[in-house]
Design a protein around this nucleic acid. Structure first.
Lengths: 124, 124, 124, 124
DNA sequence: GTGGTCTAGACCACT
DNA sequence: GTGGTCTAGACCACC
């Protein structure tokens, strides 16, 4: 697994791990029942604390993306693709909501905000 | 000044104050050379520490929104409206950028993301 | 008297007044026994508090530059020109001392510092 | 780290800390990626509040001298030595500028001021 | 353990 | 009165 940690980012390391694992699952790079690297090995590879990796795995399990089998390891959960997609979309939508609210408070109009959005997405 | 503090929010209080002051400036509720409430009086009103208010005011000054005169008070800076608007837009754009990147990592396509955005902005 | 106050300077207003009065005395713009504007009138002219002007006048008197006659006003003191010049020089010297010390701590050499000084003074 | 605090100085403690840390970086006593003492430990050592140390560290980070990693500590930034030197020089220059201006206002001539400077720097 | 934030007081300098 | 600084604690998130 190729996970890239940005130490100076404001995003906590455990969230960076979570997000990248989710992205791999979304991108079919990780499939159902695939095993994730062990907490210790990933920690060693990324040169971070094992506790940090564990926290990421715990939260992924809590959100239903993985299943941990005691003594064996952490596996990608058999998940309803539809439901997963819905989760991803909700996350993106709620971030858009926040940004749009902020723009509103700053006195920007609907079309101005849409224009800003289009500028960014067209850089794709 | 009507500022509303959400104590249980994860957003630090001083950022909540900053954002609301910025919004008031953007919304012409606060105009150039208007004086802000004193550090102490606002602290009392919001039932928070004076240091927390001071931190908000310090950062607002750093960002050029206000000017503080020792022994007199904190005033809304005479700011180039154009420049201010540009700052606001940059902030909104960079948030859109982040959300779009996240959507990408989740395997969403350009048009899917645009669709999510449109759903939200049409709720305006 | 033409005194210019910079409200946004970090230098306290009373020191700005003191320094400019001293400069006028040094520049013969103000001579022995000349009367300074009254505390109230100068305060009004500069749109500052009378207490601030009074503080400046008090300190000038303390340093021997002026004499205040109760009920009449504040006059430029009959001062030994030699002694006055010495005071001015000491003040300038001690500021140079501080700056040079700082340069030293920053690892700058004697000649580097002298070079910086020459750059500035040649802009005269 | 040997930092010396002068409690009775008019210079705020956090500025004293900042300046001494900068001097250590300039003097190679602190090198890139070296870790600074933790906020708490330095506060304890200097017998001052942790907040005061934190303020110093925050400002050092803002000026680009250090990088703070949440939960890990504060490190000396990988800084362009050239750029750093330029910053130091600018600071010294602007202080010279101020002192020279003051001398001017006091009626001192260019050569008189240069002479005062030479007296001080020759004491090196 | 680390830094990030906040509190409820205090004293000082400036107006 | 104002802001500028500092204290001695506290709780939280992160590693």
């Amino acid at each position: 697994m190729r996970i890239i940690i940005n130490n100076s980012s404001m995003v906590p390391i455990y969230e960076q791990i979570m997000e990248q694992v989710k992205a791999m699952i979304a991108g079919k790079e990780l499939k159902e029942n695939d095993i994730l690297p062990s907490v210790r090995s990933l920690a060693k590879e990324l040169k971070i604390s094992a506790l940090t990796v564990k926290k990421a795995y715990d939260l992924l399990e809590e959100e239903g993306f993985t299943v941990t089998v005691h003594g064996k390891g952490t596996y990608v959960a058999a998940m309803n693709t539809e439901r997963m997609l819905e989760e991803y979309k909700k996350e993106v939508e709620s971030e858009f909501e926040e940004t749009i609210q902020k723009g509103k408070r700053y006195g920007l109009g609907k079309d101005e905000i849409r224009e800003l959005f289009e500028i960014i997405i067209e850089e794709w």
